[in-house]
């Protein structure tokens, strides 16, 4: 995990999160509170904060470090004055997605949905859309793991309705 560079004399409160496979992650409170699911766990239950372990049943420990890294960096981007240059944010985002398979991306989308964090979910769904936007119908079926349930005649008819939408696609 990336270490917090803003460590000062004041002790930052930590919250322990437990991934689906039982692995524990100690996370600084403000970072943990980026996740609505974690936040709602503590609402009206302030006393429980110190030692309670928050179970995250739908998030695999494989993705936890990357997800936490995203929250740390993006919350820092939001707070910084003047705001960071667009290239810096873009560079972080591109590095974040590098070497992530389609399957890993989908798993992280589901994790972001479970953690109820709009910013991450928005970012990841945008990334998934970018991977398929100029692709063929066959590629998209494979991407989502969808079986074609149209007859060849039905499919040909729908294609014919908007022939122009099939021009200028990327190679699969």
């Amino acid at each position: 995990m990336a270490s917090s560079s803003s460590s000062s004399s004041t002790q930052v409160k930590k919250i322990t999160l437990k991934a689906a496979d039982g692995k524990h992650f100690e996370v600084e409170e403000p970072v943990a509170m980026e996740m609505e699911t974690v936040k709602s766990f503590f609402v009206g239950n302030e006393d429980a904060m110190k030692d309670m372990v928050v179970p995250l049943l739908n998030v695999s420990s494989e993705h936890m470090p990357a997800i936490l890294d995203f929250y740390r960096n993006h919350s820092e981007f939001r707070k910084r004055t003047p705001p960071p240059p667009a290239e810096e944010v873009k560079a972080f985002n591109e590095a974040f997605l590098e070497n992530k398979s389609d399957e890993q991306l989908m798993e992280m989308i589901m994790a972001a949905n479970f953690l109820n964090t709009k910013e991450l979910l928005n970012f990841l769904t945008e990334a998934a859309a970018n991977r398929i936007k100029n692709k063929s119908v066959e590629y998209v079926r494979a991407f989502f793991g969808i079986e074609n349930d149209f007859t060849p005649e039905e499919e040909a008819r729908i294609r014919a309705e908007n022939e122009w939408a099939f021009d200028g696609l990327d190679e699969d």
Partner: peptide, 26 residues
């Protein structure tokens, strides 16, 4: 593994041209 609502979120990010093409998916 992919809930319908999440697939919808991805499709909402696409252009009209891509969506007209992906009507053929299923």
């Amino acid at each position: 593994n992919i809930p319908y609502e999440l697939m919808t979120l991805i499709l909402l990010k696409l252009s009209v041209k891509s969506l007209l093409r992906f009507r053929c998916v299923c």
